[in-house]
Nucleic acid binder design. Structure first.
Lengths: 134, 134
DNA sequence: CTACGTGCAAATACTTTGCTGGATT
DNA sequence: AATCCAGCAAAGTATTTGCACGTAG
């Protein structure tokens, strides 16, 4: 049984092979680099579907553009407030258990636990600016 | 000592007296209802400042518009994926403790724990639609 | 031949910015 | 008089939608 259109398969493939939690634009560029031509509208439309069928997760990141994750299992993220770099954050089994309990007890549909920080790159940049601008 | 401009004070006041975690538009309407005239750009600009000084928190909600919370203490939210209704979610002290530990151990700057669901209103509407459209 | 899904471009939605003028000190 | 901040409108960015075409079944 064939589920996915060619374009949707490309998107899924790119998403499965990256850890950067890309935005639509990032996905667009990543596809281009692989010589897979695809329009942005297509990416938008397919992501909507993929999120609906829980094959892909939106990352709760409070960033200007939406960010997506090919891994829709329960796990945490850390997000740089400045550049938007997103990484998975380790999660103790205790915490996972508590979260799962919450989900089950309240029939929540999904969860996002996100830690916000300033990544090292941005920290360096910010202190440079202080030096320059006083 | 007077910290806040008149407009900023209005925004803070409205935010402190609501539980709806309003968007900029909602704030705009709420101010109007109180006969406090204020431009949207002003709301945007002041909220930026208030978030920077951690007097107000952005809610991690994956919703189209940003949503704001006058309470910036660590607590959870539940968000309806359809209408965007946001409420505080109860949080066990165990969970709070684990989250605080994470924050301290990794010097995170803030945290958002959000549960996504379909609120009862939207559930009702959605099943009506199924009846109508088959 | 039909149905579906793509890609472009236009439209919409959300947010930021430039500028002028009024208020505050 | 100088500074700060508000409000409007214009610009900018992100996302959605309409439509015509191509392709797969």
């Amino acid at each position: 049984m064939k589920h996915y259109s060619a374009q949707r398969a490309i998107i899924l493939d790119v998403l499965s092979n990256t850890k950067v939690h890309p935005s639509v634009d990032m996905l667009y560029e990543m596809c281009k680099k692989q010589n897979k031509k695809i329009g942005k509208a297509t990416i938008y439309r397919n992501l909507q579907e993929l999120v609906k069928e829980k094959r892909v997760a939106k990352v709760s990141c409070n960033f200007k553009e939406e960010r997506f994750d090919g891994d829709n299992s329960v796990h945490n993220h850390k997000v740089c407030r400045f550049c938007g770099k997103i990484e998975d954050a380790p999660c103790s089994s205790k915490m996972l258990k508590l979260i799962s309990e919450e989900i089950n007890n309240n029939s929540y549909e999904s969860v996002g636990l996100t830690f916000y920080k300033t990544c090292n790159n941005c920290k360096a940049k910010l202190s440079e600016e202080v030096v320059k601008n006083g």
